[in-house]
Every structure is written in C-alpha cells, then in structure tokens.
Amino acid sequence: MAGEEFAMTFIYPTDSNKAHPLPLSPDYKSSIKRAPNKPLIPMRHTLSELTGPVYGHETVRDGDNDLTRQHAGEPLGERIIVHGHVRDEDGRGVPHSLVEIWQANSCGRYVHVRDQHPAPLDPNFTGAGRTVSDASGYYRFVTIKPGAYPWGNHHNAWRPAHIHLSVFGYSFVTRLVTQMYFPNDPLFPFDPIFNSVPDEKARARMVSSFDLENTKPEWALCYRFDVVLRGKNATPMENH
C-alpha cells in the first residue's frame, strides 16, 4: 500500500474537463493541423500531476497588477478595474495563485511584433501584468479596456474584446489559460474561439460581469471575473 507521505488532499475529476473546447474545432482554422488525431491516453494522477509550482515574492513586483503605470504617461482608452476570485469548483477561494494577463491596447492592437493590424500602437501601453491571489483567492488588476480586432480566420473575422489570463492553482493539472470577455459583446455569435466551448453555460463563465458597486467614481469602471479551477472533491485519496 502507499506510504502515508504520498497521500494527497485533493483529487481532480477529469469529468470537469468536459467544459473545455475539443482540441479540434474546425471553424478555428489554426486548430486543424495542431490538434492531436489520436485519443488522449487516460491515466491515474500521481504525485507529479497532483503537485504544482509555488511562487516566491520575487515573481511579482509591486505595481505589476497596474497596466496603466508601466510607462512615462498613461495609456489611451477606457480605464477599468478587473477583479475577482480564483476559486475551485466548490466555490472555495484558491490562495496564492499566480495570475498573468496580456491583452491588446484600446485600439485592438497588440504590442507583439507580428501583429500587423493597422491600428495605432500606444507608447504608454505594453499590455502585460501579473499578480498573486491573496489568502481568500482575490485578485485585482487596473488596465484599459482592450479593443476588438480583425484576424484572418475567415471573411470579416473580428475577435470580441478579451483579456488573456494564465492561472496556476494548486497543481499542474489545475493549470488554465483562458480569455475573459466583456458582457453583451455583439461579436460573440461570430467568434469560433469563443464558440469552441460547446456548452452555453460554460461559455457564459468566460464573460465578465459589469460591477457597478466597485466602480471608482470619476476614475474607472469595473468588471468582475471569477476564475474557476478544478479541485472539486476535497476527499483523502486513501484511508489511514
């Protein structure tokens, strides 16, 4: 039998993964040659899957969560607060989780050298930030609202405005990269990346909500976005 020192506190049901898009989603053309053709091989989680990186204070610097203060001046666009909790499936906050974001500027242009969208770059905006969730799982960013932008997937294809998020959580299998969208975007029905998520309720979990209560008067609007990670069954893996 397993030694007690190997027992883990949480298990991560693979059923939760049904919320994710299938690897091949032909309407998103780039997936056609980059999705595996062979089925993924199921396996039991071992200590390797059930553990994950822990961050030191050196990973995040003061102010890294404010994307409007990284340059000499302030970026153009609509200043917003994006905040929420990193949670598990039972709603418990996930503390001390690294959250990294990156996004286009208010005109829908990324600072990346390969972005050729003919919209202006903003010398006062890079579009990258990071923070660590606090003891309750809460995180907060200050940024500007990104613009929609065209892409070459199909005729007249435009991505709905979004912020990319990268989150770690408790283990290597809770790792998540997703995109946060804004409420009532008219581009939703036409976006193959948003619609690669088959379930409507699951798609709704990628859309932030307008948070009037936490808007800062005379300064910034606010959107709330909770990130929900795997980690449902807080049961011991074995009895002692």
């Binding site: 919320a19 690669s196 979990r205």
Partner: peptide, 24 residues
Amino acid sequence: MHESVKPDGITPSQTVGPFFKYGL
C-alpha cells in the same frame, strides 16, 4: 452575495493565441 454562489463548472480553456510572447 456573489461570493457564496457555487460555480456551475470550471472556467473553460481558450488558446494562448499568437501574441503571448510579450506577456509570458
């Protein structure tokens, strides 16, 4: 309270896209 609502599932994954380099 918003905080007390049990989520109806996990947040789905989305691609990192082509432009993650400057951030990650």
